[in-house]
Design a binder for these strands. Structure first.
Lengths: 284, 284
DNA sequence: ACCTGAACACCGTTCAAGT
DNA sequence: ACCTGAACACCGTTCAAGT
């Protein structure tokens, strides 16, 4: 709905891997995962399949490149936080996905009561981790195909090109946190897994909501999902049913943030026993 | 390599959804994700495609059912921990995947030094969470296609049939942990995301190792992957390079366990301030 | 109700041929 | 070096027809 620029591509501008990947991303955004076809691609680029195969080995590589580009843009946007230059973000990723200005700040602490953020220094490693996480979170909402492709690529070649990007971004902040080197891998892995999993799940919620009833608010969808959970067998699913209401009423970004803070707490509590070690003490 | 039973299927035994799903799992285990084809399936079951379509709506539903069955078997095996009955596990899942006896116990605490497990009561909620996690971990190693399909289904319909299964298993233990109800959803989500992500990544490592050089030990693969990380641009990937060695030498199960304990620590520290609140205090 | 199997539409990929 | 486009092999799915 958002992407409208550059329709009816003119046959000028020589073909290039970059242009192909760009077209692939637009096609994925517009027509969904099933919409990316070599035929659709050749039409949009006004060429034959052979031309595309000269720049790209196969469809898998094309999908990887598209995933790579979108993730890189999301991470670059976050990196340009306090600095002014937008880096190499531009072009790829529609709408405000790569907007370097404000990282769409985490939902304000509307939290019920108990968790009173203990006045962390702004721009702390924790803050930066949250910003990176929300950058990926937003990218997945803008590109509904991203979670799936990310998961596919992670399953296919876990040490491929995307993982190091995300790993590096988060890992630097884990290091800045003061975590001893022996625990870098574990701590970073935990954060990355949570972020990708939770952000992906949330994006899937939005996507499903959009698909089921294009115009409906996702709140209505969550309501329906919550009802579905409520109709599970009470003997087999007591917990899931009990949590159904909670799921319906939750705010995505708040929930996502709470999960990140949970992992962060685990990291600091387990690996930084000197610092202050424990949970943020309830303000006195 | 393991599955050998019931080859050259006889055309007796009426077709059923269950038999189709079973054949699909075997085909996936044997021939990989690309090997599951309606043509291969009809051959194996000695029917036509129409017969399959009478029992199953389409390929997507078939893949979902296969995923469902394997996950259910893994969770059932864990549930039969202290009890004797194996439940409805049987049949599906080759080799020792669904063996109800010992949950392949988490790697013994070979931990370097500092983390001295504070003598948790055996069969504690923590222990059960670890057992469930390792059950899924093992299932993913036995069925290399499982992480991918799990991720696909999660992206496709996050509140589908598999999620509640896993969510319920973990969630019950989160409740047993004493987490206040308001935090059930966050805590359970964090655990599930970490477990699926980390187990999947590990399974992908093993799978890639097997694919690249069928006979090589996965240690050699990790060595190669570690070298690949070491060849990344030192300016762009200082952290990832620094962690490469650590990745090479790690023990999967130990690393996986450490991550679970990290999230568990976060949960208890953040949500159980009364209990003892903090990280396992170094034994006096 | 359950199964058969030929047929259809579509897809990724190749390759001899052009410039 | 880069592009064309017809052709190939294969796949998921359908459906009229059988029992």
């Amino acid at each position: 709905m958002a992407t409208r620029t550059r329709r009816t591509q003119r046959r000028t501008e020589a073909l290039s891997r970059e242009r192909i990947v760009e077209a692939a991303v637009e096609l994925l955004d517009t027509a969904g995962e099933g919409g990316l076809t070599f035929r659709a691609l050749t039409e949009r680029l006004a060429t034959g399949p052979g031309a595309i195969y000269w720049h790209v080995a196969n469809k898998e590589e094309l999908l990887d490149a598209a995933t790579d580009a979108v993730v890189a843009a999301a991470l670059a946007a976050e990196r340009a936080e306090s600095a002014g230059s937008a880096g190499s973000a531009g072009s790829i990723g529609p709408a405000g996905a790569a907007a370097p200005a404000e990282p769409t700040g985490p939902a304000e602490p509307t939290v019920s009561a108990e968790r009173t953020e203990p006045a962390e220094p702004p721009n702390s490693p924790q803050d930066k981790i949250r910003a990176i996480a929300f950058g990926l979170f937003d990218a997945m909402e803008d590109h509904p195909w991203l979670p799936t492709q990310l998961a596919l690529q992670l399953s296919r070649s876990p040490w491929g090109s995307v993982t190091p990007q995300i790993f590096e971004s988060i890992g630097r902040q884990v290091r800045a946190l003061g975590v001893p080197e022996g625990h870098w891998f574990t701590a970073t892995s935990a954060l990355v897994h949570y972020i990708l999993g939770a952000a992906g799940q949330n994006a899937a919620n939005s996507a499903t909501a959009r698909t089921l009833v294009p115009d409906v608010d996702r709140a209505e969808f969550l309501d329906a999902a919550s009802k579905a959970w409520n109709e599970l067998d009470p003997d087999d699913y007591p917990f899931t049913r009990a949590v159904a209401a909670q799921m319906r009423d939750h705010d995505d970004r708040e929930q996502f943030l709470a999960g990140i803070d949970l992992v962060l707490t685990g990291i600091t509590a387990l690996h930084l026993p000197g610092d202050q070690g424990c949970a943020p003490p309830p303000a006195p």
